[in-house]
Amino acid sequence: MPRNLDMTALRSFAAVAEAGGVTKASGFLNLTQSAVSMQLKRLEESLDLKLLERSGRGVVLTGAGEQLLGYARRMLALNDEVFGRLTNQAFEGEVTLGVPHDIVYPAIPQVLQRFAAEYPRMNVRLVSSYTKGLRKMFERGECDMILTTEDTLEAGGETLMTLPLIWIGAPNGSAWKSRPLRLAYEHACIFRAGVQKNLDEAGIPWEMAVESDSTRTIEASVSADLAIHTVLEGMEPPYVEKIQHGGALPDLTTKQINLYVSDLAKGQAIEDMAEFVRQAYRGL
């Protein structure tokens, strides 16, 4: 009697092999780690072969696993092609895009509009958080691609643009003249420590006047002239403006806007989404 391979287990095996571990693969597959581990166990039992070996915090393929991976990729590709062609749902599914709060505008609405026009049957899940949080989600396989604001570029990423940080305050505001200088920042803002260091080096006393986990709270406080804040040039939110301080405040550093695309996220839709993101930011 012929035996059949479990395609779901085979997909989990391929994802784990390509991700180098169960944690990232489970996030990408939208399954629990225990569910993925169980599928791998069933696959090994059905073949009576050891396919994966633990190595540190990840896994490595055995000789049998390396051989199976080649077959698995071809079988999964053929499986997906059959469903795509016979059901006319080649571009149904979901893309998860992670973007820091402060660089969503003005580029991301353009990206979403363009993607929706090209792939009307696909859903885009937009995750807006801080760079540190987005990187953790990306490492767990919970985002297909993320944008970050960083000082340097990590392995596997690409820099879309480099922009200077600028001081922002209320239109015609005077909070920037106060001493100690009143600052408003989110708790997890990646710019916060660097700005404080710049002020210390310039000999300007400061205090955290407004702290919050909400970007909207920070924006409202700044627009009310209660404190000042920093953003990447060109990314200023409404109701605030760049402070023309004439040298009364220190110049700030530059930051890179970087793009990372998961090696588990494949297909034309993913490639096009990444290209739409590149074009939107480079066109600013």
Rank of each mutant, 00 (worst) to 15 (best):
V95T: 06
G98A: 11
V99D: 06
V99P: 05
H101T: 09
D102F: 08
V104M: 01
Y105H: 06
Y105E: 10
Y105G: 00
P106V: 00
P106A: 00
A107T: 10
P109S: 05
P109D: 08
V111C: 06
L112Q: 07
L112P: 11
Q113Y: 12
F115H: 13
F115D: 08
A116F: 13
A116V: 13
A117I: 11
E118Y: 07
Y119D: 02
P120I: 10
R121K: 10
N123K: 15
N123H: 15
V124L: 14
R125P: 10
R125T: 14
V127Q: 11
Y130I: 15
K132H: 15
K132S: 15
G133T: 11
R135L: 11
K136G: 10
M137F: 11
E139V: 06
E139G: 12
R140E: 15
G141K: 12
C143E: 07
C143K: 00
C143T: 04
I146D: 05
I146L: 03
L147N: 00
L147A: 00
L147Q: 00
T148K: 04
T148Y: 04
T149G: 00
E150D: 12
D151T: 02
T152V: 12
L153S: 05
L153H: 05
L153D: 10
G156A: 09
G156C: 09
G156T: 09
G157C: 02
E158I: 09
E158Y: 07
E158K: 13
T159P: 02
T159L: 10
L160F: 01
M161P: 01
M161V: 14
T162F: 01
T162N: 02
L163E: 08
L163N: 02
P164T: 11
L165N: 07
L165Q: 13
I166T: 10
W167L: 07
G169K: 04
G169T: 04
A170R: 11
G173R: 08
S174D: 01
A175V: 01
A175E: 01
W176A: 01
W176T: 01
K177R: 03
K177Q: 07
K177V: 00
R179F: 03
R179A: 02
L181Q: 01
L181T: 02
R182S: 10
R182P: 08
R182E: 08
L183S: 03
E186M: 14
E186D: 06
A188E: 15
R192K: 15
R192E: 06
N198K: 15
D200W: 12
D200T: 14
D200S: 14
D200F: 12
E201I: 13
E201H: 14
G203P: 03
G203S: 05
G203N: 04
I204Y: 04
P205C: 01
P205I: 04
W206C: 00
E207T: 07
M208W: 01
M208P: 08
S212C: 07
D213F: 14
S214Y: 11
T215P: 13
R216K: 13
I218V: 14
E219S: 13
E219N: 15
E219C: 12
H229Q: 11
H229T: 10
T230N: 13
T230K: 09
E233T: 06
E233Q: 13
G234D: 02
M235S: 03
E236M: 10
P237E: 06
P237G: 00
P238K: 05
Y239S: 14
